[in-house]
């Protein structure tokens, strides 16, 4: 057998696997809503706001709910105590959608 025949058949097999991978991904995507149903039900009934990824501290467990400057509690670019602090980008405050605080009114 010529080496090129072997090589081309190996590559066709790899390409077939690659296409199979894409088809598998599509298949999983099409049943994703059923697979996700349990999670969605919990998020809806409990009003969850975050994914449970890092449980080491409150500002990594609920990054969306954390204090204003978390996960960079000291200042926006400060290094963090936890490895996950280096994985979370600084919050994008002030955000364009966040409501502005009202102008200070006169105090009596």
């Amino acid at each position: 057998m010529r080496p090129s025949t072997l090589c081309l058949s190996v590559f066709s097999a790899l390409a077939a696997l690659f296409v199979g991978m894409l088809l598998h991904a599509r298949g999983r995507q099409s049943t994703a809503s059923q697979e996700r149903a349990g999670r969605v039900a919990l998020v809806r009934s409990l009003g969850l706001t975050d994914l449970c990824l890092f449980t080491e501290a409150r500002y990594t467990r609920h990054p969306a709910m954390a204090d204003r400057h978390a996960a960079f509690q000291d200042h926006p670019m400060a290094l963090d105590h936890f490895p996950s602090g280096s994985l979370l980008a600084p919050p994008l405050f002030p955000s364009p959608h966040a409501p502005l605080p009202p102008a200070p009114s006169q105090r009596p």
């Binding site: 697979e35 996700r36 349990g38 999670r39 919990l42 998020v43 409990l46 969850l48 975050d50 994914l51 449970c52 990824l53 449980t55 467990r61």
Partner: peptide, 13 residues
Amino acid sequence: VLAEDSELVASDL
């Protein structure tokens, strides 16, 4: 014990 497929949102609940 909450279902296995809910771990991503509820593992520590």
